[in-house]
């Protein structure tokens, strides 16, 4: 038995989401190999991840921003040596893995939150409102795993061998044009230890400055509900929820968010949830560990000050 994990790199290091996928892969049983793709990449960081047998390096100019076509073709080429192909359910994993699965005639299991055995998994359906146990009857399995459901593997401590792979011919069907990366000094939303999110109650994009100040004190990422995104307050990559990002920080502070089902689906696995809302009937209070009812425009600056004071004392 062996497992191939598609490992995404983040500034040379293995991305946190992929470290979580490596943990999930370890629970399948068998050896765990990693595949890293890119232009000018090496496998040195990936080779240090604990529990990894071998790192396969696909280094080529056309893989600088790997297309689904090229990435899936490479996975198909490597698949004969593996029982499982695994990736985190990031936008990259979600794009590539189903394409590889179909080429291999395998039914993928998406967004796995628990590994019960090599062929048996748990995953949410209906926006997190039901939890299904799924058994795969295919001879090989293709999985994406929800990164927040697995602890990241240790980035140090391993000593895997690193080897280059032969690449299939590049596809000319798709080409990279550009990428607008959201600029932020803050931690990334899906990996932040603390997340402060605003909803329609924020009233405007301008008012999100209040959350920025609070986030600065907490070292937090800033998120938003779909309502706030739809209202144009903040860009879509802020969106937490079923149709946005799934987060599970140690602390989630929901400000002016009523708590629609689709938002809860994206954050209800947070360890501690704080809700601040003027409407005491807001459904968010039903999932919050601590609720504070009142005017956020008064409470948020107060909270920022209080946290500053608590920090310095």
């Amino acid at each position: 038995m062996s497992v191939l994990v598609v490992a995404e790199l983040d500034g040379g290091a293995v991305a946190k989401a992929s470290l979580a996928a490596i943990t999930a892969a370890g629970q399948l049983g068998g050896d765990v190999d990693l595949l890293v793709m890119g232009s000018g990449v090496d496998g040195s960081a990936a080779g240090k991840v604990a529990g990894v047998r071998k790192v396969l390096v696909a280094d080529a100019a056309h893989l600088a921003h790997p297309s689904a076509e090229d990435a899936a073709a490479l996975l198909v080429q490597l698949a004969p040596a593996y029982d499982h192909l695994v990736a985190a359910s990031t936008s990259f994993g979600k794009n590539v893995m189903p394409r590889a699965a179909a080429l291999l005639d395998i039914a993928q299991v998406s967004d796995v939150i628990e590994v019960l055995g090599p062929d048996r998994f748990k995953r949410f359906i209906y926006a997190g409102n039901a939890l299904a146990t799924v058994v795969s009857t295919d001879a090989k399995r293709v999985l994406t795993i929800r990164p927040t459901a697995f602890a990241p593997a240790a980035a140090e401590g391993g000593s895997a061998s690193v080897e280059p792979v032969d690449l299939p011919a590049p596809s000319d069907l798709s080409s990279f044009v550009g990428q607008e990366v959201s600029q932020s000094e803050r931690p990334e939303l899906t990996s932040a230890r603390v997340v402060v999110s605003g909803g329609r109650g924020m009233g405007s994009g301008e008012n999100f400055k209040l959350l920025d100040e609070l986030a600065d004190v907490l070292g937090a990422a800033v998120g938003a509900s779909r309502a706030a995104v739809d209202a144009g307050f903040v860009p879509n990559d802020f969106q937490v929820g079923q149709t946005g990002k799934i987060v599970a920080p140690d602390l989630y502070v929901a400000v002016g968010i009523s708590g629609a089902i689709q938002h809860l689906a994206g954050m209800k696995d947070s360890k501690v949830i704080v809700a601040i809302n003027k409407d005491e009937e807001a459904p968010m209070f039903q999932v919050a560990d601590y609720g504070l009812v009142g005017d956020l425009f008064k409470l948020i600056p107060e909270l920022t000050q209080e946290l500053k004071r608590a920090k310095s004392s």
């Binding site: 044009v177 899906t190 990559d237």
Partner: peptide, 9 residues
């Protein structure tokens, strides 16, 4: 819509 922002292809 990718995790990092918007990618154009």
């Amino acid at each position: 819509e990718v995790d990092e922002g918007i990618q154009t292809i």
